[in-house]
Design a protein around this nucleic acid. Sequence first.
DNA 1: ACTATTGACTGTATCGATAAAGTAGTCCAG
DNA 2: CTGGACTACTTTATCGATACAGTCAATAGT
Lengths: 335, 335
Amino acid sequence: MKDIARELGISVVTVSKVLRDHPDIGSDTRQRVLKRMKELNYRPNLAARALVTGRSSTVGLVVPDLVHTFFGEIARGLSKALRKKNYSLLIASSEEDPQLEQQEIDQLLARRVDALIVASSQWTIETFRHIEEQKVPYILIDRKFAGLSAHFVGVDDEAVGILATEHLIEIGCRNIAHIAGPDVSTGHGRLEGFRQALRQRDISIPPSNVVVCKHGDDSGENSGHDAMMRLLRHSPHPDGVFCYNDPVALGAMRAILESSLRIPGDIAIVGCGNIVYADSLRVPLSSIDQQSETIGERAGKLALACVESKTSVRPKKILLQPKLVARQSTQRKKT
Amino acid sequence: MKDIARELGISVVTVSKVLRDHPDIGSDTRQRVLKRMKELNYRPNLAARALVTGRSSTVGLVVPDLVHTFFGEIARGLSKALRKKNYSLLIASSEEDPQLEQQEIDQLLARRVDALIVASSQWTIETFRHIEEQKVPYILIDRKFAGLSAHFVGVDDEAVGILATEHLIEIGCRNIAHIAGPDVSTGHGRLEGFRQALRQRDISIPPSNVVVCKHGDDSGENSGHDAMMRLLRHSPHPDGVFCYNDPVALGAMRAILESSLRIPGDIAIVGCGNIVYADSLRVPLSSIDQQSETIGERAGKLALACVESKTSVRPKKILLQPKLVARQSTQRKKT
DNA sequence: ACTATTGACTGTATCGATAAAGTAGTCCAG
DNA sequence: CTGGACTACTTTATCGATACAGTCAATAGT
């Protein structure tokens, strides 16, 4: 590779400049160099470049669960955005474990990623102070943190709650329940939206109609099942349930069917996330679409923007609007 | 960081050695260095290390589709295996496009990944020759190539076909059909297994009972639907169908239900992949489990083994045994 | 007592690029 | 014909580590 320089009787710097389309190169020389590069199938060593430029052309993504299609879609959108600029994607999974997440983030920082995109399962904001110290721009997705003025891309969770709840009201449910998610922003927002929608329509429900299920994404199905069983213990049972997310909704539906109740006849269900398979389920699941792929794409663009601009970008919150996708699990005549 | 050396009045080399647990360091010095590292929150620059050692502690993974949970599970297993050794995972998605795959692989090679793990959607083996030239060890997963003596980790596809088909036979199906996958090793193997199982039981079927659907993972659902419609045109329609994979099976089931036929009453269905949601489907889907997470884990271990050993490892084929998971879509009394 | 061996370090070159500053020619204006 | 502005290169220093080959003192062996 310095071979190229030697062979053509020019300096390595000249070769390097050709590589980067630097202006001050004669078109004659440029052609010769390019030709030889092709022949030798030469690729620049990005580690060396990263060392001297201080930038790795790499973005890190940390998610709690690689298997949940929600994050798969985000990764796809992100990867699409990065590909255009020849950035690569380092992915790490935290398995919903804050400790592990911390560790993975450190690892990514040591690799000098140019930006970090995190769907955090953290409880504190300490980790993020840590990132800030390293001056690496980072973007939160899906879950945000109060008191942290950071970039954020995600869906408007309150709107999610409102949308879902109003839908249940519209199809005639009056004894509405909510299986709430874990104690993070998405959980809070959706619960808040739920409450707000009920207030607005002057519908009141017993406090026991809100149950919390601990594990959101990971083993959502099981905890959704448990939570629904708790709801069913009360009589009369709810006639409509808004579930924190789709895996939870799956569990809830299983609990309902096992109890010989019908969906949506006895109980209507709305989930959130609009998983790919929603259409093919035992009862096709009405769900709130979070535009996951768009989240990834926007986050990617934002990350690149942060990297390009020398000056640190003012924290930006991108709130995407959720959309209701009604399917059979809420298909019911109005009462 | 050379600051550390200066402050403590020792050479950078010594510091570097502490970093890597090199033996010839006094325990006294080691303690002092470690202490100072903690205080400064120092992290070595991995780009620099990669440059001089020629190893990046990074493994590349190329998959056709990030959203398909099959690959999500592989990524999880892989990530688990790599984490132990502090390797990181660069993921690229080829979106089922051979051209794009080629490009992404080049990108990963330029980044000097220590090993490459590929679930290829390639038609030719040219790309792999290319990788070999760079002397980067690579491991094929899921899909293999005839005439390429490379490492491979995946399920025994013939066994998959046999397992699925015998199951259909056992529950009483006689007019069995197969919706075959694309023209890659997984498709061939499963078809071959299908044929073999039928031969062994002396069951013969009309050639029209094997239909091919082009897109496997990507838009499997739609092409599965199309394929099933083609099967239904013949009379009598098949009484059992083995589908290339689960997305295809979902499409097929939709086609069947739309035609007012029952599953498994009129037609039994077996898929392959055992997707996470198989249990919650309209008709819970019997499927062949491919042990995807194990695939990822084994591939990861193998990759690390290749990297560690200086001498190139003899190509290894790891064939995992598939397992049948019977659910409602094949629950039927024997005839 | 004198060479060997070991332990704990240090010095220097190098990995493969890029940044910044310098050096020739060339070309034209005044 | 002289000096500034270009163009097309080249030189040198550097990024942050690691590899390799010493150095030097202390202990050990015979």
